[in-house]
Amino acid sequence: MTIQASTEILEGSVLALLTREDYYGYTITKEVQKVFPISESTMYPILRRLKKEGWLETYDQAYEGRNRRYYKITELGEEQLISIKEDWAQLKEATDKILEDKDGE
């Protein structure tokens, strides 16, 4: 895929993943990389921003003698995900009209 995913799409993807279960950062990156060609360094600034906005919270859990930082979606994050999904639906519809030459049908 040569079209790059916007930050908002990546944010929505992370929030959507976290509605299923809590993940630690590396796993989030690997799950998103299954769909979008992003580098590992792309995801951590997004996670920090989502936490700063109050859409995620974190907790640490021991794993094989080390701590892993897990991310959990908040109620505000769930509301933001709804907003992102609505915006995506509008963008997809508008883009489909142009790319598929539907002429407003």
Rank of each mutant, 00 (worst) to 15 (best):
K34C: 12
P45I: 05
Y26W: 06
Q33C: 14
L56V: 01
E86F: 09
V32D: 15
Y63N: 08
T29W: 15
K30T: 07
D60W: 05
Q4V: 05
K85R: 10
W55K: 03
T74M: 05
S83R: 11
I46F: 00
E79A: 06
I98F: 12
I46T: 00
P45K: 04
R48A: 04
T2P: 02
M43D: 03
G12W: 01
T2A: 09
Q90H: 09
Q90G: 06
I73G: 08
E11L: 01
Y24C: 12
K72I: 03
Y44R: 12
L99P: 01
R49S: 01
W55S: 03
E40I: 08
Y26D: 04
D103N: 11
E93S: 14
R68S: 02
D96P: 00
T58H: 05
K34W: 07
D101A: 13
G77C: 03
E31S: 14
L17I: 06
P45W: 06
L76S: 09
A94Q: 11
E105T: 11
T74D: 06
T27V: 08
G77Y: 01
R69I: 10
S83N: 12
R69D: 02
I98S: 09
S39I: 04
E86P: 00
P37M: 08
E64G: 08
I46Y: 00
E31K: 15
M43H: 01
I98L: 14
